[in-house]
């Protein structure tokens, strides 16, 4: 028994190191003086000295703020759109015959299987015509495709978990459909709403394919980071990477209790 426990802790330790190491490297290249990182053929694995100089320098040389603001706005639009379409669709699907609902769910699932890059190029061609190319609204509209199916699944799962009698009782007591939805059903699915909003937000924050194709001239942060990497600006890139990673890590840690396999598979049951 003793040996097995030691084995378990050894595996836990090794896995934890593997998963944390890349973030540790990001920390090193951001805070250790350049002479110990990029200046070496074999950079030091431990923080031999710490400095803020790298980050300060990169803030002086390039604009990090604008792409971040853009990403923030786009993510907000995407998350709002997810709720605006996901809540009604999830509610509607929970109310119709489950056979038909499942067909629609499968249809939405097919959208997730459409390769982003395949869909994005014709969209870009259309968006040039209607003036949404190189435009934040254009990015948000296209990125919504990535998150909408999942949002509908999550909301559907939420609405299905409400006992039918509650809604029916409200209707018997004279509440209209919208009143019942707003006063009874939605307050009961607040966790699903939060998960939908945050997952959509995070997905958009991370999304690269649509952003680089629809709006190369008005880049969000992932596209800008890609630009820095290809233009061989590693200090700027690392400062940028660090700034955007810290909030998302905090968010992921908070989200952890909501992150359940059932949500991520969109309520699909094997």
């Amino acid at each position: 028994m003793q040996v097995r426990e030691i084995g378990l802790y050894a595996v836990v330790f090794i896995l934890a190191v593997i998963f944390v190491y890349p973030l540790y490297v990001l920390f090193l290249i951001s805070f250790v003086p350049v002479t110990y990182t990029f200046g070496q053929i074999y950079p030091a694995q431990f923080p031999v000295a710490l400095t803020l100089q790298n980050i300060i320098t990169s803030f002086h040389t390039v604009s990090l703020v604008n792409p971040l603001i853009r990403s923030f706005e786009v993510a907000l639009m995407v998350a709002t759109l997810s709720l605006a379409m996901g809540i009604p669709a999830g509610y509607g699907l929970s109310k119709i015959k489950s056979g038909i609902a499942n067909i629609i769910v499968v249809l939405l699932f097919f959208v997730n299987m459409m390769p982003g890059i395949v869909v994005a190029i014709p969209i870009a061609a259309e968006f040039i015509r209607v003036g949404l190319y190189d435009n934040l609204v254009g990015i948000a509209l296209s990125q919504e495709l990535v998150v909408l199916p999942l949002s509908v699944f999550i909301m559907l799962g939420g609405f299905r978990s409400i006992p039918k009698d509650l809604d029916n009782q409200a209707r018997v007591d004279g509440a209209g459909l919208l009143t019942s939805l707003g006063r009874i059903s939605i307050p009961l699915v607040v966790p699903a709403v939060i998960v939908t909003f945050l997952l959509s937000w995070m997905t958009s924050w991370d999304e690269f394919t649509y952003a680089v194709i629809i709006s190369p001239g008005n880049p969000t942060f992932p596209v800008q980071l890609y630009n820095y990497v290809t233009r061989a600006l590693p200090y700027e890139a690392s400062a940028f990477a660090l700034i955007v990673t810290i909030p998302v890590i905090i968010l992921a840690a908070i989200l952890q209790k909501y992150l359940k396999g059932e949500y991520l598979t969109g309520g699909l049951v094997g």
Binding site: D206, L225, A241
Partner: peptide, 18 residues
Amino acid sequence: STLIILPFGVATVVSGFI
């Protein structure tokens, strides 16, 4: 479990860069 979940929050572009 918190440590393991962290990479999920890291942007793909950032992980590519790292």
